[in-house]
Write a protein that binds this DNA or RNA. Structure first.
Lengths: 341, 341
DNA sequence: CTGTTAGCGCCTTCAA
DNA sequence: TTGAAGGCGCTAACAG
């Protein structure tokens, strides 16, 4: 049987209340008493029963998620995942508050972060824009002792407790290898399509992609990055432009969102000119394109996993507990037409 | 605030004990009373607090895992994952019992299943051998109301509550696509290396692989399957044999274990003759070979995820709760040298 | 600074 | 067939 507070109390020769005060680092205990209790905890290998504690406290964890009000499939998927988490909110003793911010707007995000922190939630998760003012706000929050997790896109520096998202450099490298090996042995141009170089995940994917292309596939030359702001209409125009030009584009890496526009444009490219395409995020659009042979591989991050992971981590941090690291690593799913779920 | 048993009791005009009896389907309640309580539960949308219930019951979930005593890296990894789960056993209120059975032995497995069930655990997870006597034992267990989950390899028919493992047909198809596309446009032979065609997961991978090769890559011809019994020494000899012959082998799919032998043999193949290789399971061996360029892609199933998933599902079933389906889907990880964790 | 006591939501004797 | 009372492990008033 696991030891309980009673065991600690009698072992240390104090009352339950005192044990509780020590366990929860509340003031009003003499150094000597504190020591006795700590000793007993240590000797007995006591681990407090979080479920019982929560029951006694009637505790719920108010969590705030700050998400860009970007209308693309991935962000919508993220919202769906949050809604699903809300369904289980009662059982998991969490209460999720969703805050929208304009996309790619560092100032707005910093403000939203401060506003969220003012409500003193048990934890905050946010999609980072990698800018100094955001980092400053994040640092304040961490300093205030509120658990803070970046979601999908990370923040440079260490001003957060955890990052719930994929390794974007690995994603970029993987995209490069797949594109390079899928595109046969010939020469040609490779187009790269991003949302915005202001977000760290896009920048990291892009840089890693370019590095591997240069190193392993020198026969392919990478064209300057196009920024489509994750907007389908913009993306469509850009891609159409690419294929009406004279350059021979043999491959295309779409590392951002807005793939609806990409697919529309690809559909109009004559079959014999169609490039090898790797895109990000499995949505209705990319799934269809994969099956139709317009896209060759999709790299995906599972928004549901990211949300659940962020929640687990925030709760654990709030309780001062450690997490199962392997469980919280967000994997890069690689989908071909053959392994669609 | 969520409704509690008190709310139900007063709403139904009965005592707490009666509510409890109804909630837990214990006898000794008149039909009319039962109905009143059910009604109140329904009207108030009552969901019982499992944590509080477990606290009151002092409940732990005794879970039995039946694992083949097969000495390959993957099974060792499975054991490690179980040990890690044991570390958190206290917090999660589980007690894991590990039972070994001879590998590929249906009779022994069926016996082990019955023995495990006799101890009346809260749930059983096992690596299935796909045979009628196993299915019979499984059916008995399910009929006895003990939650039952297959792990890694599934059982034909529906005699289990859940399968915690990957879609092996999808894995085979994916391997085929990767091999086909990585191997350029030329003709040639493709070797397939399995452990044993008697195991369902190997059979499924193999058949799906062959189907896609025939359909999408007719220029490549698949050689008869070699069965290496997951034994490194046997595998090494077979692969060496392959490459000392006159046939031009451009690709190789290793869908079983024993990759230590495969890699050893590959190291001796002259660089210009090296085939495109796809293997299963990320181990020290395959990781090294991936980095060295001897293996081009590794398909992996995460033993840790499988174990954690099996535990979550068994607990949920034991409590009569539903699971988050998407969370319990075991993914096929695809690793290139670029996205190694 | 420390201890007593009464719960949190649920389950389980023991009586009626 | 029903109910009252006590307790699971922990926390939080409220007294000393």
């Amino acid at each position: 049987m696991r030891p309980t507070v009673h065991d600690i109390a009698s072992r240390a020769g104090v009352s339950l209340a005192t044990v509780d005060r020590v366990l929860n680092r509340r003031p009003g205990v003499s150094a000597r008493t504190r020591e006795k209790v700590d000793q007993a905890v240590h000797e007995l290998g006591f681990v407090r029963d979080v479920a019982a504690a929560n029951l006694a406290k009637g505790r719920t964890y108010p969590l705030t998620f700050i998400i860009p009000s970007n209308d693309n499939s991935f962000m919508r998927g993220l919202r769906v995942a949050l809604d699903e988490a809300r369904v289980r909110a009662g059982v998991e003793r969490i209460a999720i508050r969703l805050v929208d911010v304009p996309a790619f707007d560092a100032a707005a995000l910093a403000m939203a972060l401060r506003a969220a922190a003012a409500a003193e939630p048990a934890g905050i998760a946010f999609v980072a824009v990698d800018a100094p003012e955001v980092a400053a706000a994040a640092a304040e929050i961490v300093a205030a002792g509120i658990p803070l997790v970046t979601l999908v896109s990370d923040l440079s520096g260490a001003e957060r407790d955890h990052y719930a998202g994929i390794d974007n450099a690995a994603a970029g490298r993987t995209a490069a290898s797949l594109l390079g090996r899928f595109s046969g042995g010939g020469k040609g141009k490779v187009a790269v399509l991003a949302g915005s170089m202001l977000v760290r995940d896009h920048r990291e994917r892009c840089e890693a992609f370019a590095a591997v292309m240069a190193q392993d596939f020198a026969r392919l030359s990478v064209l300057p990055v196009l920024e489509g702001r994750d907007d389908p209409a913009v993306v469509e125009q850009m891609v159409s432009g690419l294929f009406s030009g004279l350059e021979e584009i043999v491959a295309l890496y779409s590392l951002g969102a807005g793939n609806r526009g990409l697919v529309k444009a690809l559909e109009r490219v004559p079959a014999r000119l169609r490039p090898v395409v790797v895109a990000h995020e499995l949505t209705e659009t990319t799934r269809g394109a994969l099956q139709a042979g317009l896209i060759d591989a999709v790299l995906n991050q599972d928004a549901g996993h990211e949300v659940r992971s962020a929640i687990r981590v925030l709760k654990a941090k709030a309780d001062g507990l450690s997490v199962v690291a392997a469980q919280e690593r967000i994997r890069i799913d690689i989908f071909l037409k053959d392994n669609l779920p």
